[in-house]
């Protein structure tokens, strides 16, 4: 059990997580990084992926994470993201529906004036949710 540090996960709608942890794993645009106590100061963008937070001796708590960024300073680690959700709170039906919708949009993308980039991002978010849910 390593030493603990303060972690804060903020989304526009709520303060998703605030508390102590001894390890967190996040997916940045450069790949997964694990953060332990006394990590060097860092700023990095996050990809759509997962947040893993270890509290106490127990296993990691998984949460989905939409794009955002991460800052590590001396005092604490802050994760800023558009949306975060604990894995056990994922609404699978909703994710499936979002996936279908996004796929349809991408298929029709060329002829209709749809924002393909946006549809792709939404597809990525949906698949991410489904993937994490099935891993649970």
């Amino acid at each position: 059990m390593g030493r603990k540090f303060n972690l804060e996960v903020v989304t526009p709608d709520e303060k998703f997580f605030e508390g102590e942890t001894d390890m967190a794993i996040l997916r940045t645009t450069e790949g997964d990084i694990g953060i332990l106590f006394d990590h060097e100061p860092l700023v990095a963008p996050l990809k759509i992926g997962s947040i893993r937070i270890r509290q106490d001796e127990s296993a990691f708590r998984w949460a989905t994470c939409s794009s955002g960024f991460l800052t590590v300073s001396d005092e604490k680690v802050t994760v800023i993201t558009d949306a975060a959700e604990w894995v056990d709170e994922i609404d699978l039906d909703r994710a499936e529906r979002a996936k279908e919708r996004a796929e349809k949009r991408i298929r029709e993308g060329a002829n209709k004036e749809v924002d393909v980039l946006r549809a792709k991002a939404s597809l990525e978010r949906a698949t991410n949710r489904i993937r994490l849910y099935s891993q649970k």
Partner: peptide, 27 residues
């Protein structure tokens, strides 16, 4: 000021962070 590491580079990070900043300020 502390030396801060930017992954992959400060410019890349800012390119990402600034739109976020604009969004969140508008919000």
């Amino acid at each position: 000021t502390d030396f801060v590491n930017y992954e992959p580079s400060p410019e890349e990070v800012l390119k990402f962070v600034i739109p976020k900043y604009v969004e969140s300020t508008i919000f």
